[in-house]
Structure formats: structure tokens, C-alpha cells
Simulated assay, not measured.
Amino acid sequence: MGVSPQGDQRRANRQRRGSRGGRPTGFDRPRYARRNEVERTINALKGFRAIATRYDKRAYVFQGTVTLAAIRLWLR
């Protein structure tokens, strides 16, 4: 199921073509809103240089850096 809205003509064309029409015509508004929220959060986290460039070698250290950055964003 797609998450971005489609125009009426695109939706009608996809339905007309049936199984050859490409992606499904459905649009799930809550799913789209959640995707937008996740993308904005990831972009905010990338504002922290250590996360954007991944300086940490070990995964657990990187996870701690992400956690600390998320806490800082939440406290703003």
C-alpha cells in the first residue's frame, strides 16, 4: 500500500490497467503521517554531527550517541 497521496486521474488509470497498473491505489493517511514524523525526526537527528557522519566504530557506542541526541531533542 502506498503512503503518498495520488491524483484522481492516476488512481483511475491504475484501476483501469488492473494488475498491470503498478503500485496499489490505496492511501493510508495515518501511515503517511507517521512516515512524515519519522522522516522529520531522522533529519533532526542528522543535525548532530556525530550521527550524520557516524564517527563511532562500535554499534553500542553509536546507539548511545543516538539515544543521547534523541533525549536532547525531546528536552527542547
Rank of each mutant, 00 (worst) to 15 (best):
G21N: 04
F27G: 01
W74Y: 11
R11Y: 02
I51C: 01
R11V: 09
G64L: 04
A52K: 15
N36I: 15
Y60M: 13
I71F: 12
N36M: 15
R54K: 10
G2I: 04
R31S: 13
P24Y: 00
V3I: 13
L73T: 05
Q15K: 13
T67S: 15
G18V: 02
A69Q: 00
R16P: 03
Q63E: 15
A50D: 14
R49E: 13
Y32M: 09
T25R: 01
R10G: 07
V38T: 14
S19T: 14
N13S: 15
N43W: 11
A70G: 05
R54E: 04
P30L: 08
D28C: 00
R54G: 00
N13T: 12
Q9A: 10
R35V: 14
A33E: 15
R11L: 09
Q9Y: 11
R17D: 07
G2D: 11
W74Q: 14
V61D: 07
L73N: 00
T53S: 11
A12S: 06
A50W: 03
G26C: 10
R49Q: 12
N43K: 08
T25N: 02
G21I: 02
A33L: 12
F48Y: 02
R76K: 08
G64K: 00
T53C: 02
D56S: 13
E39F: 11
G64P: 01
R34Q: 12
N36A: 15
G18H: 02
R20A: 15
D56Q: 09
E37P: 05
L45C: 05
V66N: 03
L45K: 03
F27E: 00
G2V: 09
R76D: 07
R58I: 03
T53E: 13
L68S: 09
N43P: 05
R17Y: 12
A52H: 14
T65D: 10
F27T: 06
K57Y: 07
A44S: 11
A12K: 14
N36V: 12
M1G: 07
Q9M: 09
F62D: 12
D8A: 09
Y32S: 01
A69R: 02
G18K: 01
A69W: 05
L73I: 06
R29Y: 09
N13F: 12
R29A: 13
L75M: 10
A33I: 14
G26Y: 03
R29P: 07
R20W: 12
L68C: 11
D56C: 07
Y32G: 04
E39L: 08
R23L: 00
R31Y: 06
L75Y: 05
F48H: 05
M1T: 06
L68R: 13
